[in-house]
């Protein structure tokens, strides 16, 4: 019984020594698997918040799975950098550094925030569902157009801004 279970739970992983990830001249990520050029690939995160650089899925551009890399640190330095850059691009999410105001009008909440030093306005409906508190102090906000914004650590933004948002957090 136990051996059956461990069989089912055995995760097939890519051999890190066979993997070479690099950027082509147009800035897209390509994979060389045991020396064979697999062309452009996509990377996915399995645990984007807790382990952003582990259990990285490698997919062809047509969405066929090539395999899973257990940890990017197992790769060569160049491959690791290329993979991290690709992940940053795919999983890029505007980070809110400051909340200037939150105004409620007719059930919609109008946010005025600062992202990368520039002001941005967006509207959020159904605030208790679209402002999410994932792990301790990590906040995700979804606006009406389907864009998402994050606050990586609520404790790191100013107290006044924190107080504006606090009533809406679970």
């Amino acid at each position: 019984m136990n051996s059956e279970m461990s069989d089912a739970l055995r995760l097939e992983l890519l051999n890190p020594t066979e993997i070479k990830l690099e950027k082509n001249k147009n800035g897209f990520l390509i994979l060389l698997l045991s020396g064979e050029n697999k062309g452009r690939v996509k990377l996915t995160r399995a645990y984007p918040y807790n382990m952003p650089y582990s259990y990285i899925g490698v997919y062809s551009i047509e969405d066929d799975e090539i395999g899973i890399i257990k940890d990017l640190s197992e790769l060569s330095e160049n491959s690791e950098t290329a993979a991290k850059e690709e992940l940053e691009k795919r999983y890029y999410c505007p980070e809110i550094s400051e909340i200037l105001s939150i105004k409620e009008k007719m059930g919609s909440f109008y946010f005025e925030v600062k992202i990368n030093g520039s002001k941005k306005n967006f509207a959020v409906k159904d605030i208790s569902r679209n402002v999410r508190f994932t792990t301790e102090n990590f906040i995700m906000i979804f606006d009406v157009d389907g864009n998402r914004y994050i606050i990586p650590d609520l404790n790191k933004i100013r107290k006044k801004a924190r107080r504006l948002l606090e009533p809406y957090l679970y």
Binding site: N26, G27, R40, G146, N147, R148
Partner: peptide
């Protein structure tokens, strides 16, 4: 992508990036 999209143009089966944009 997660909260952005990318406009890509293809020439001779090669992809080139044109711009990124907010997913909305």
């Amino acid at each position: 992508y997660l909260s952005t999209g990318e406009l890509i143009y293809t020439f001779n089966k090669e992809d080139y990036s044109a711009t990124l944009f907010s997913l909305g």
